[in-house]
């Protein structure tokens, strides 16, 4: 659905994006994470051609965007909705009027605009606040209006620019649940940028980590979790700094898919006769499957640790020795 192919973009001497390639399949929710200044914003704005690449191409639904101008560009943008961190609603116009603006851009008649705007607000659960001005709405409600506006033209793609970063955790969860529901109901492909791992964990099917304009790693979330040394997996399931325990080896176990349900650690303790201590653990449901990481302390140093790693590997659990050397 979205194919970003070897794209680079510089501002003066600063390389905002450096040979970035990302593919997002139809109906997928894909998250791009990274620190501020990593190039996320620029990347997102390539997809609706608010930014243009210096080289490479951006194709959305078989349309090469970087080549479009004027009327064709506007038509392409009607197929791509966008929501913003600060909502970007027109303050002196009501919720309904803000949505109607998007419909006017598509060329709907006045009567259709009114009716469809109500429908869109209904879709995001805000029909009762249609005549409210943005200043009379809460942050979550404002973002709902933003989503209604972005989806008013019935686009295939939704771009989300830190849409929940200005919201509190509970409202964030509600907005994400809404996006997930809409994506499923409307077959919407979602590309979102965020610096919050929680967002990725809650709704993304795939993710990419962007660092100084380069994609450091990317893929389906479950694959990432299973990738040795994955930075995204570490960030998704943080276990903190490894403690310094003399006489112990520290192991980080990553579970994904079926292994999470099996009593692997109990087997390890029993079969190898090791007095394993659990230092930390985190389990989440990703894409309907359990995934998580556990940090163990293995007594006896290097040899016992190596033995444990082999034992776990044979049972399909990836273990990494985090050095307390």
């Amino acid at each position: 659905m979205i194919t970003i192919d070897h794209v680079s973009r510089s501002y003066g001497d600063v390389r905002a994006l450096d040979d970035v390639s990302i593919q997002v399949g139809r109906g997928e929710i894909f998250g791009v994470v990274g620190q501020s200044g990593a190039g996320k914003s620029t990347l997102l704005r390539l997809v609706n051609a608010i930014e243009r690449p210096d080289s490479g191409s951006v194709v959305v639904d078989d349309v090469e965007l970087s080549a479009l101008q004027g009327r064709e560009l506007r038509a392409a943008r009607h197929r791509i909705g966008m929501v913003f961190q600060h909502f970007n609603l027109v303050g002196n116009r009501t919720a309904a009027q803000n949505v109607e603006f998007a419909l006017e851009a598509v060329g709907r008649t006045r009567g259709d605009r009114k009716r469809e705007a109500r429908d869109m607000l209904d879709l995001v659960g805000l029909a009762h606040r249609a005549d409210a001005y943005p200043s009379e709405l809460s942050g979550g409600q404002r973002q709902r209006v933003g989503i209604a506006r972005a989806l008013a033209s019935k686009p295939d793609v939704l771009l989300s620019d830190e849409a929940t970063s200005a919201l509190d955790p509970e409202t964030t969860r509600q907005i994400l649940a809404l996006v997930q529901r809409l994506s499923a109901d409307l077959g919407l492909t979602v590309l979102l940028i965020t610096h919050e791992m929680e967002v990725v964990k809650q709704i993304c099917d795939g993710a990419a980590l962007l660092e100084s304009g380069r994609v450091v790693e990317q893929g389906p979330l479950l694959d990432l979790v299973n990738t040795p040394g994955s930075r995204l997996a570490h960030d998704l399931f943080p276990l903190g700094e490894a403690p310094d325990l003399p006489g112990f080896g520290i192991l980080d176990l990553t579970f994904a898919g079926g292994e999470a349900e099996r009593p692997t650690i109990a087997l390890l303790a029993r079969d190898l006769g090791l007095d394993v201590s659990i230092l930390g653990a985190t389990i989440e449901t990703i894409g309907g499957q359990q995934a998580g990481r556990t940090r163990l302390a293995i007594p006896g140093g290097g040899e016992a640790t190596a033995q444990a790693v082999t034992f776990l590997a044979e049972r399909g659990v990836r273990a990494e020795a985090v050095s307390s050397r």
Binding site: R74, A75, M82, A150, S153
Partner: peptide, 8 residues
Amino acid sequence: ETADSLGA
């Protein structure tokens, strides 16, 4: 930017 993104 928002108006641009809406193809206005």
